[in-house]
Simulated assay, not measured.
Amino acid sequence: MGTIAVSDNRKASNVRNNRSSDTVMEVMVYTFAAIFLVILIYPLYFIVIASFSDPSAVGSGQVNLVPKGFTLDGYKELFRHDNIWAGYRNTIFYTIVGTAIGVIVNISAAYAMSRKELVGRNGLSIFFIITMFFNGGLIPTFMTIRDLHLYNTFWVMVVPFSVSVYNIIVARTFFQTSIPNDLWEAAQLDGCGHIRYFIRVVLPLSKAIVAVLGLWIAVSQWNSYFNALIYLKKQNLYPLQLVLRNILITNQMQSSLGSGEAAQIAMRLANLMRYSVIIVATVPIMCVYPFIQKYFNQGVMIGAVKE
Rank of each mutant, 00 (worst) to 15 (best):
K294F: 09
V212W: 03
I292H: 03
D8T: 13
P180F: 11
V29T: 09
G123Q: 03
D73P: 00
E307N: 13
E77P: 01
F291S: 04
S162Y: 07
L248D: 01
S51F: 06
T95W: 05
R89S: 15
V156I: 02
A86M: 13
V277E: 08
M253S: 07
G137Y: 01
Q235M: 10
A304T: 14
L138M: 14
N106C: 14
G303K: 05
V277H: 12
S256I: 05
M28P: 02
G69E: 02
G120P: 08
G74Y: 02
Y45V: 03
D8M: 10
V119T: 12
T99M: 01
A186N: 11
I179W: 13
M267Q: 12
I92N: 00
A304E: 13
F127A: 15
P239S: 00
K234W: 03
I247F: 03
G98K: 07
F296K: 02
R200E: 09
V202N: 08
I169Y: 10
N251G: 12
R89G: 15
R146C: 09
Y75Q: 12
Y94F: 15
T177P: 00
I285W: 00
Y42C: 05
T131V: 08
V283L: 09
G98A: 04
E185S: 06
V27R: 14
I168S: 12
N297D: 15
L205N: 15
F142N: 04
R200Y: 07
A263L: 04
A304R: 14
L78W: 08
V277Q: 07
N135A: 05
F175Y: 00
R196H: 11
W216N: 00
D8Q: 15
P239Q: 00
M1Y: 10
F291N: 04
N271D: 14
Q188W: 01
P140K: 03
N14E: 06
I302M: 00
S259A: 11
T31F: 11
F161T: 10
I139K: 02
G258S: 05
Y166D: 06
